[in-house]
Design a protein around this nucleic acid. Structure first.
Lengths: 234, 234
DNA sequence: GAAAGCATTATTGTTGACAATAATCTATTT
DNA sequence: AAATAGATTATTGTCAACAATAATGCTTTC
């Protein structure tokens, strides 16, 4: 297949102009990818050295990471990489359910016809990718986020888009990473996505919201189950 | 009446230890109260002088204000106090509807019985305050936020609580300030609050969420109407 | 007279040094 | 030996100077 699936939904591909911004991006990736392990103590001077900058911009980066909850900070006492516990993950999934449910409702109201068509095409690509890669793998996850991202955009609600994109999706990525390989949910997810897209195409706001909420709370139930099993084995 | 109504729901009354934090609080108040008008150009050196600190902590304060969307900033180009337009307000109310709807649902599931009783007492106090002050005035507004705040706490969802408290409620205050005196909605709001409290007491999650969402979308419709009228007269 | 390019200036981005705070360790006393 | 008080050290908070960037206004040319 020549037409590759758009994998990354990361916001501004245009290289960040400012040092603090670039460092923010770097550290963010390092945390999400697990290179900076959860709970790691953050020492400003050490990190500044590591990233080859002075403490000023590094501090700005840390503050921003604190805002998106990737770092927790206590005045004068220092900061650590967040530790995702079950409680926090549940909070995130609940918030996501509320926000994306609303986004789906708004998308059903506002999404232009051509974008709906394009959404359908995206799902076709996902289906093709599933049979190719046998359902598992990295692509499913990013493909999933792609779908959700498009709906968030279609909601035309900047606040919701910003919070999903800038904060919740990052944390969701970490959740998934932590819960390891999720059993092949790709087929289930795809058919749910199709249902949601259909509801949007029919301009059925109520149904679109309902289906999206079910889809997300279903995902949470599976993640929670995995976490419980992990916990039992310890 | 000796027992005063708890008016302020502002988070940490304990004086902020760090200069950046205190300055953040100061500027935040100044923006919400309108002393720093919307759209005002922010010049770091000027503000640092005004608040009697150096640019370091001031910068940190500005970055935090940017995160809660009270300030918009363009790299190298400077920053301005946010200008609330109708579009942004709608975004905020929609997000609030989704989040507080979910909070009401969770509160119906999780709120302890004694807190539910206390919620009812709060509404009694509000009723008393309404007849005293003839329905209008400052107290209604803060009383309203008090009610919503309690439900957000009862949701036991830290993410939702943080976002409502740290960001959305501030913006809502600005919206209200901008739309001027709202016609005596106190009675309507109170009876809606009572209905929501009743649904929570009955542990009816579905109804609690539904009523909360109606309550908030109703509030938005009124605010929007006022804004449209203002716009027409220009 | 208008537009384009250069120089100037105002403002933000970055740095390293200094001050203040809190955690840690040691010594002394009970 | 345990606990407390003090000193020490590591780390964050604050500052003022310097560099880089973009906006502004002037001059020059067509």
């Amino acid at each position: 297949m020549s037409g590759t699936i758009p994998i990354s939904t990361t916001e501004n591909a245009l290289e960040s102009r400012t040092l603090a911004r670039r460092t923010f991006d770097s550290i963010k990736s390092d945390i999400i990818d697990g290179e900076l392990a959860q709970g790691t103590k953050i020492v400003e001077s050490d990190l500044a050295l590591k990233y080859g900058i002075s403490r000023g911009p590094l501090r700005e980066a840390i503050h921003r990471l604190e805002q998106i909850k990737l770092i927790v900070r206590i005045p004068h006492a220092g900061s650590r990489v967040v530790t995702l516990d079950t409680r926090m993950m549940q909070d995130i999934y609940e918030a996501r359910e509320a926000l994306e449910g609303m986004a789906a409702r708004l998308a059903a109201r506002l999404m232009p016809d051509d974008e709906i068509a394009s959404l359908s095409t995206l799902l076709d690509q996902h289906e093709a990718a599933i049979s190719e890669t046998e359902g598992k793998a990295y692509f499913q996850r990013e493909g999933d986020i792609d779908f959700h991202y498009r709906i968030a955009v279609a909601s035309q609600n900047q606040w919701i888009l910003d919070n999903l994109n800038g904060e919740l999706y990052q944390l969701i990525r970490m959740c998934r990473r932590q819960s390891g390989q999720i059993p092949s949910r790709a087929q289930t997810a795809l058919s749910q996505h199709r249902q949601i897209a259909a509801a949007i195409a029919q301009r059925d706001e109520e149904l679109a919201e309902l289906l999206m909420r079910r889809h997300i709370s279903g995902a949470w139930k599976i993640v929670r189950k995995i976490l419980e099993d992990q916990h039992d084995s310890n």
